[in-house]
Amino acid sequence: MEINNKLRLMVISTSTVYGSDFLAYIRDRIADFIQVKDVLFIPYARPSGVSYEDYTQRVADALSPLGIKVSGIHEFENPGKALIEASAILTGGGNTFLLLKTLQEQGLLSVLQARLGDGIPYVGTSAGSNITGLTIGTTNDMPIVLPIDFDALGLLPFNINPHYLDPDPQSTHKGETRETRINEFHFYNEQPVLGIREGSWLLVEEGEIQLKGNLQARLFQKGKAPIELSPGKIDF
Rank of each mutant, 00 (worst) to 15 (best):
N161H: 14
P167T: 12
P121Y: 06
V111N: 01
E176T: 06
I120R: 01
T125L: 14
T135K: 08
T172S: 13
T135Q: 11
Q170S: 14
G128I: 07
T125D: 05
L165Y: 07
L109A: 04
G117T: 01
F187D: 13
N130S: 12
P143L: 03
T180F: 11
S110A: 13
S126W: 05
V193M: 04
A114W: 02
I144A: 02
I120S: 06
Y122G: 06
V111W: 04
G175H: 08
T138A: 09
G117Y: 03
N159G: 08
P121H: 06
T132P: 08
V123Y: 10
T180V: 06
N140M: 12
H186N: 08
N130D: 14
E205I: 04
D151Y: 11
T135F: 10
F150I: 11
R197C: 03
D151R: 14
D168G: 04
G175S: 12
G124H: 07
I148V: 15
Q170R: 14
H186G: 06
P169S: 07
H186L: 07
L156H: 03
Y164A: 09
G124I: 05
E206Q: 15
P121M: 03
N183Q: 15
E184W: 13
H163R: 11
D168N: 15
G133L: 13
Q113I: 01
D141K: 00
L153Y: 00
L153F: 05
T132V: 12
S129Q: 05
T135Y: 08
E206W: 00
Q170K: 14
I182P: 05
D166K: 10
P147W: 09
V123T: 01
N140A: 08
G195H: 08
Q113V: 03
Y188T: 11
D151C: 00
D151F: 06
Q106P: 02
T180K: 07
I136L: 03
T177R: 05
V111T: 15
Q191L: 01
V204R: 10
E205V: 07
H173P: 00
G199T: 10
D118Q: 14
E179H: 07
P143D: 04
G175A: 10
N140I: 06
Q106R: 15
E179Y: 04
H186W: 02
F150W: 06
G107V: 09
I144H: 01
G124S: 10
W201A: 04
T177P: 03
A127P: 09
V145R: 06
P169V: 11
D118V: 04
G119S: 01
G154I: 01
G124N: 08
T125K: 05
R178L: 00
D141R: 00
N183F: 13
S129A: 15
H173D: 15
I160N: 12
Q106C: 00
D151P: 00
Y122F: 13
P143K: 02
E190W: 09
E205M: 10
T135C: 09
G119W: 03
H173T: 00
F150L: 14
A127E: 11
N161V: 09
L194P: 10
G128Q: 10
N130I: 05
G137A: 02
